[in-house]
Write a protein that binds this DNA or RNA. Structure first.
Lengths: 246, 246
DNA sequence: TCTAAGTTATTTGTATGAGTAAAGAGCTGA
DNA sequence: TCAGCTCTTTACTCATACAAATAACTTAGA
């Protein structure tokens, strides 16, 4: 199923590959579902048969199914078996599901939907951050920005700084659920960034936009921060679309 | 822990109490964690000890832990045991977690955070819906609105219509991740609505605001839809704050 | 013939016990 | 002081048996 090299080599910050068997099985099945190899409504083979087929114990298999069930991908009942639920019941913002979706070659429309959501959420978060940021937030963002400038997005450490920059903004917004949402999206952004890097070098220097955003938040200028983040996401979308077509 | 009657009597649309043991244990522990009875960093008792204490088999207990782990609440490793993760790693937008949070008497700040997120997401969703709605969407919304007017929010069927109304808007926005986000929030909204109802009758007729929103979406007026939804959420927040203080 | 109650068979759910593998703690030697 | 080893605790995996739930079937009664 995955003769495709390259993915495994990328070290994710929170991928938590979790080499445990139940984790691997959940991951494999999750990817298969998101890839459409099991469609909503499909009934999986029975526990005994399927676990034998996967060469794992029934216990491990069942724990994998519990994981998928917790994320809304499947639903099991006695007698009827375990079936894939309707797509509308999937927790598409779950970090694992997003990661799996990107491993399964996400559709272009899915990526566009994610960017649409970013365009809604992140400017608002930036605005809140400009309103509520503390001195600590500012210094952290400054540090991240500096590292980002020094190493660039082509390096692991540079991407980590980018993530840290965005993450600090979301922390500064002081909103737990919003933070959770952003973490998920951030994971997806990481993947799209990697996508971009895999095709070609980034065609544009991302630093100026980041600096404008940073200045706006430091100044506490709410509307400027909102506008700067809007631009930033828009440009990221443009880059992504470019690399998808390329 | 909960001598407080009333919760169990409320029939939720998708509560899916799932009377299976692993589900109950996950629910109980999840509520305990969200209530702060187990704090981030705390280590749970060992599998054997804890499962005996809970009077369930290790199998069922472990499946419960897998569920919590899938939602980011806990993390288990050999030798270290199972510990509650940092709050920032929790999937606060997971429908189950939101439900558990409300069972655990959510803090006022948490509710405010949720409304803040609604204020960001739902007006944008309404705007998208005004842009993309189909005839089917319109007729569904109209039907829901009518039922809502007929039965009122004090009845089960009326609340279902309210949910259906909002749900259709989010469907009309044609964005999977946004839809998933909204479903989670919708669940929370259900709870806050019930909260409101428990204290006192709703002090204000919600229908006019809903009708204005409906008309805007039907007319395809993007900005009007955005504004109408903004008002609607703002009023809902005001009502909720009122009933929290009462 | 149709309906409703009861029965059966199939599938997931729960329990238990044995053994494996991972990872922190402590020891040992340089 | 520190690198490496052993030890021990803990979750992880496996196999097996049995229980519970429920869709499908069967049968009794009208």
């Amino acid at each position: 199923m995955r003769g495709d090299p390259g993915y495994e080599d990328i070290k994710l910050p929170l991928a938590s590959g979790s080499r445990r068997i139940h984790g691997s099985v959940a991951r494999d099945l999750g990817i298969a579902i998101l890839a459409g190899r099991y469609a909503p409504g499909d009934v999986l083979p029975g526990e005994i048969e399927f676990s034998e087929q996967l060469k794992v114990s029934r216990t491990a298999y069942r724990e994998a199914i519990r994981i998928l069930s917790a994320k809304g991908l499947v639903e099991s009942r006695p007698r009827t078996g375990t079936r894939v639920t309707q797509r509308s019941r999937w927790n598409l913002l779950d970090p694992d599901i997003l990661a799996w979706a990107f491993e399964a070659e996400p559709s272009e429309s899915f990526i566009r939907d994610l960017f649409e959501l970013r365009m809604i959420v992140e400017p608002a978060a930036a605005a809140l951050a400009a309103e509520r940021r503390s001195g600590l937030d500012i210094s952290r963002m400054g540090h991240a920005l500096e590292e980002m400038g020094r190493y660039g997005l082509a390096t692991e450490i540079g991407r980590a700084a980018d993530q840290s920059f965005h993450n600090t903004i979301l922390e500064a917004a002081r909103n737990g659920p919003l933070m959770a949402l952003s973490s998920s999206i951030a994971a997806a952004v990481t993947w799209t960034t990697i996508f971009k890097q895999r095709r070609s070098a980034l065609p544009r220097d991302p630093m100026p936009d980041h600096r404008i955003l940073y200045e706006a938040i430091v100044a506490g200028d709410i509307e400027a921060a909102r506008a700067a983040m809007t631009d930033l996401v828009r440009l990221a979308l443009a880059d992504t679309e470019l690399s998808l077509k390329a």
